[in-house]
Design a protein around this nucleic acid. Sequence first.
DNA 1: TAGATTGTTAATCGATTAACAATC
DNA 2: TAGATTGTTAATCGATTAACAATC
Lengths: 212, 212
Amino acid sequence: MTNKAHSIPLPTIKRLPIYLGVLNKLKRAGRINVSATDIAKELSLIPIQVRKDLALTGIIGKPKIGYEIDQLRGFINKFIGWENDTDAFIIGAGALGSALMGYDGFEQQGLRIIAAFDINKKLHGKEIHGKKIFPLEKLKDLAKRMKVSMAVLTVPADNAQSVVDIIVKTEIRGIWNFSPVSLNVPPGIIVQNENLASGLAVLSTKLRKGNK
Amino acid sequence: MTNKAHSIPLPTIKRLPIYLGVLNKLKRAGRINVSATDIAKELSLIPIQVRKDLALTGIIGKPKIGYEIDQLRGFINKFIGWENDTDAFIIGAGALGSALMGYDGFEQQGLRIIAAFDINKKLHGKEIHGKKIFPLEKLKDLAKRMKVSMAVLTVPADNAQSVVDIIVKTEIRGIWNFSPVSLNVPPGIIVQNENLASGLAVLSTKLRKGNK
DNA sequence: TAGATTGTTAATCGATTAACAATC
DNA sequence: TAGATTGTTAATCGATTAACAATC
């Protein structure tokens, strides 16, 4: 069996969790099966694109019937590594960090926020949305003890790199970076940049185009 | 002069605000000029890609010297429509909405949050991060009076569509959708979906690949 | 059966990357 | 001057879309 991991299109990976949302909605509505056409219609995409994306997860559908919703959810979840809950720490309990601690969307997607870390002494020991805030010095120890390998970085841009330098010395291997700066990490650490400004730029550009 | 608006690559639009961040950083460091090579190095991209992106904004650089930072910022800002501050309302003052109200990253990008709206009566009249919360019924009137044409949607998935149905009856023309559902809007209204789960899926997939 | 939908192979499209002459 | 960097034209790469036989 050849490993095609390197050939998965990034756009497909980004769409799969969106399909998952549709599947959950249909399941709640009592549906058992779903066709690529159904999903496409719901998302204003074209059926062939959905079919191609789903095929990559390895699922096999039935002509005329489509896919079995539960099975499809399983295939997608497995494909993007969401089979079990992934535990993560929030680093930086400011405005954005606090929000993400209370964002129930993550739980639904299998991301479990275990705790938060911050340099601000006033926050230590406090809880936000039921999650405790620890000093940054405890990160290494707790990451190891709790087997947490993912960090959600929500510190101000100025502190981001120095905090990352601490993170990379722990068991943490994946950093989901919400700070609008690019980070320097050693090989083996994976960074996913989440730049909210990009989405805003797309919207602004479309709006301006529509205005003319 | 031909209008090439339809041929701007979306990936370019997403990268431009990231370049802007680099430019601001360099400017603070006292730099006057910058080359595509400088920007590329900072972001782990290749120079030709940066050069191509910048060329689309219409700026002209000087061989050997590069681009004048201030001028380049102007071109990028103009290109993505961030010349003047854009006013926006937050719709849904829950966890995510509150966070975005306090997120200083937006101000830096020219997005000014004017106020928030929520159906929860307990929140009406209160302030979060200095922004007042109004009942949803006031949206139409205030959007018109304050000439606000952009809404940041941060309501729970279940309420999203019904809230959108209200939004589209106002002066608001652009919706930045943080709810993980796809929205139905009449022609002329522009929706930009911001799906945090997509970024998480990319990170999970990369992590899993690194693990094997 | 007839029609909808699948999986697969091929064609198209658009973005990225390469090559290179021009030039401060 | 020599070298770095630009703008432009061409080549490559990868994702999307189309076409179609197979089939529940």
